[in-house]
Design a protein around this nucleic acid. Structure first.
Lengths: 248, 248
DNA sequence: AAGTGGTCTAGACCACTAT
DNA sequence: TAGTGGTCTAGACCACTTT
């Protein structure tokens, strides 16, 4: 079917990339079926006239892509697609925030509140302490799209909190400024239905399926400073993933 | 705070792993803030007395983990956490299928049907053609947990389809047998609410929030052969992800 | 004992960036 | 021009598996 290629030394494409594509092409074509062993690294060195490091680099890439498994002392084997390896990204969700022409952020309100047990637990403050609640609405082409509720610790001396108050573009939340002291975040996708309040704000209907994208942000002292949810009707966003060989 | 470590040559831990941890530790501790430049590769070579390849390997790992960005000719820079890089896995979902003691699969029904436009579009068969509908129930500790509806192309000569009919353990769906001709799969998470039928089967209530995990499987000829949904009440599963520095 | 992948060296040359 | 990351060589030694 497909002729056996060699490495083209005149190509702008690095040798290890060419080798990756050669091997992936053979696997995709069924030359090496799932479970079967690939030629050893030394064989590949001779066959394609490249150094061991270059072969290893290609194999490592296939390993990272989940295409093969390596067993020391035994060989490199083609892996069968494994549904457990699917990885869903927020790309589609994220792209909304990059589109600064059609997407605007409206502050619905910001107020000082008292932490209940739930908020206290998430932000590691004792219930009754002051916290800040910010409600934002992401508007796309003049239509409400995503509703964001965020609870912040009330600690005026903490610059990260003050910075957060000035976020009128949610872009800042998604893509760190490079100067913030935000260290890491945790996210969770939950299935939900819209409440009356949420439906009104989002111009949808109560009981409609929706995603709750929960987040907790931590500063460099490992202290949580923000907990909240992005609430999005289910028909407005989709989380996708692929497993196994992508494309041809 | 934390003393500057050297590479321990007597350790079982490879030098490049030690260097990864040293650099991550320094970034996590704030020694190198987001946006700032890491020491150059040649400086790291001298400082830690390792070869260029070893340093590059460590940097590459940080690159893959999204901790740093490299700019050729300029340097390696600490990256700020980016929400767009969150990756949600099916691990929790998947683990159900591995637990063969507590998890069983019940076939609710298998029947020959005629493809409507929707099924035809997904499986690339003309509407009116015969397809197979399989309905399965994943039972956990004697309680219904996930409902699976799968449409298969009707093509008796196609071994992948015949194999599919014999899947009484969904484990086979998740973790390829190594002999199947399943090449790749596409997944999508959709927000939904339980229909009356689904609620009855899952012993839940109509209108409850739920995930629809849609899948399409392709064989080695790039032909789709299976389309279906895993339907799971929202309170039974959670999709999680982290961004930025994990742990310490 | 032979073969396999895993780690590592000590360089080389190149493309690109900053000055 | 000097410094940076990107690619690559031609080996070495080790841990492990297979025979």
């Amino acid at each position: 079917m497909s002729p056996i290629r060699d490495i083209d030394r005149t190509s702008y494409e690095p040798a290890y990339v060419q080798l990756i594509n050669i091997l992936k092409g053979q696997i995709a074509a069924g030359t090496y079926l799932p479970g079967s062993r690939l030629p050893s690294e030394s064989q590949l060195c001779k066959r394609y006239k490249v150094s061991p490091m270059t072969v290893r680099r290609s194999i490592k890439a296939l390993l990272d892509q989940g295409v093969v498994t390596t067993i020391q002392g035994s060989g490199t084997f083609v892996k069968a697609p494994d549904m457990g390896e699917a990885r869903f990204s927020l790309e589609e969700f994220h792209s909304l925030f990059k589109d600064k022409v059609n997407t605007k952020v409206k502050i619905l309100g910001a107020m000082v509140t008292r932490a209940d047990r739930r908020i206290g637990g998430k932000l590691n403050v004792t219930p009754g302490e002051r916290t800040i609640l910010i409600r934002r609405l992401l508007v796309r082409k003049s239509k409400p799209f995503i509703y964001h509720r965020e609870h912040l610790v009330y600690e005026p001396g903490r610059p990260i909190v003050e910075a957060e108050l000035e976020v009128t573009s949610l872009h800042g939340l998604f893509q760190g400024t490079g100067e913030s002291s935000l260290k890491r975040g945790e996210f969770a996708i939950k299935a939900a239905v819209l409440s009356k309040e949420e439906a009104d704000i989002l111009e949808s209907a109560e009981g409609q399926p929706a995603f709750h994208l929960e987040h907790v942000f931590y500063d460099f002292d490992e202290r949580p400073f923000s907990w909240g949810h992005f609430i999005c009707p289910g028909d407005r966003v989709l989380f996708r993933a692929d497993v196994g060989m992508i494309k041809g």
